Simulated scan of single mutants.
Amino acid sequence: MRIKAIGVFTVLALSLAITPAQAATAWPGDSATRTADGTSVFGKNLSGLSFESANVVWAVKNSPSTLYRLVPNGALWKVDQTRSLSFKDGQGDPDAEGVVSTPDGLFVVSERDNDDDNTSAPTILKYGTGSAATGEWALPGMPDVDPNAGPEGIAWVPDSYLTQNGFKDDTGKTYNPADYSGHGSGLFAVGLEATGQVYVYALQTTGAKLLAKFASGQKQVMELEFDGSRLWTTCDDHCNGRATTFTISSGKFKLKATYDPPAKLSGLNLEGFAISPNCVGGKKVVLWSDDDNTSSHALRSGSLNCTV
């Protein structure tokens, strides 16, 4: 969701968090893109995307809070399942901004309850087959920002990648999954729209534990995606749709590259981004969601070189 207003705390956070932008290079895939949904399927506010497999994509709409399961239909993706979302108590309307499919389940990040949209409430919610969340974690450690400028994107990073690359928390301690009882099999990265910061959490049975935070290299973050070897952060038209990638070096997530989007997507309000796990003919399918539903289409499809 776009920022409607920026308060004094947001301005302060922006001044502290933004780092000089790295020069962007061309999109590392085909320059051609196409619409990937039918006409007027989703309307506005389609925000987050995540591949469960090459043939299943999850998408969330932040208002009204809606979860979609998408499957291929020729060259397009069609809605296979739709359900409204609520918090764990079965109440409220989560401002669902990002979604990620993981081996531990399906998780959604929300910046507030749309029924109380003047109050910031950064939260990760876990969903099973119903509308009510089966798990709920308030997110500590984020600055006080406008309620409509909170967490926008979420990605899951497996413990195997973190331990293999010697990930360290912000105290300098090397990450040991055994120290975080009940957290599942990985950590969650969450992008904060207002500042462009990324926060890394363990979701324990006792609550969410903040382990680390770092700058995305852009002034805002709209989506996160982990492709098995890199963490991607993407921005919307406020940053010309650019993406940054990170790998772990010396225990920390370090900026590796900055990419412009394919030319036809420049200037669109891109809030969702997802990369297929399958490589076919040297390419992976990539999906973007357009929050503005430009020309009555909310999904765009392109490709990414598998060797990036």
Rank of each mutant, 00 (worst) to 15 (best):
G90D: 11
F273L: 02
T134D: 13
N176Y: 08
A138N: 13
Q81D: 14
K264L: 11
A23Y: 02
P147R: 09
Y161F: 15
N55L: 05
Q22W: 04
W77I: 02
G128R: 06
G90W: 12
T205V: 05
H297Y: 07
K213F: 04
P103V: 04
R69Y: 01
H238T: 10
K219F: 06
L211V: 05
Y68D: 03
G186A: 08
N45A: 11
A5N: 09
N148Y: 12
F42L: 00
V200A: 05
D291K: 05
K61V: 00
A243K: 15
K61T: 00
A208R: 05
T244K: 04
P143S: 07
P64T: 07
P143M: 06
R34D: 14
D93H: 03
A32P: 05
K61L: 01
P64C: 06
R112Y: 11
G302L: 14
K213N: 14
V308I: 15
D169E: 08
L70A: 02
A138Q: 12
T163W: 03
V56S: 08
K256P: 00
V108D: 09
A17Q: 05
D170Q: 14
V8L: 13
K213W: 02
A243F: 13
D115S: 13
S181D: 09
M142N: 04
T119P: 09
D146Q: 13
G241T: 10
G38S: 00
R69N: 08
Y161G: 08
K256V: 07
V109L: 12
F51G: 04
A24P: 13
A54F: 03
D30C: 05
S295P: 01
W58A: 05
T66D: 08
P122T: 09
P72D: 03
D159S: 14
Y127M: 04
F51Q: 03
K168C: 07
V308C: 01
L76T: 11
P20L: 09
F42E: 00
V198W: 06
Y201G: 06
S84C: 01
S216L: 03
R112D: 14
I3G: 09
V109T: 12
P122N: 13
T134Y: 06
S120Q: 15
R2V: 12
A54E: 15
S84W: 11
L106H: 10
K88Q: 14
D30S: 13
K284A: 05
R230F: 02
Q91P: 04
S47E: 07
Q22E: 11
L211Q: 09
T39N: 01
S160C: 02
E223R: 09
E97F: 09
G228S: 00
Y201E: 10
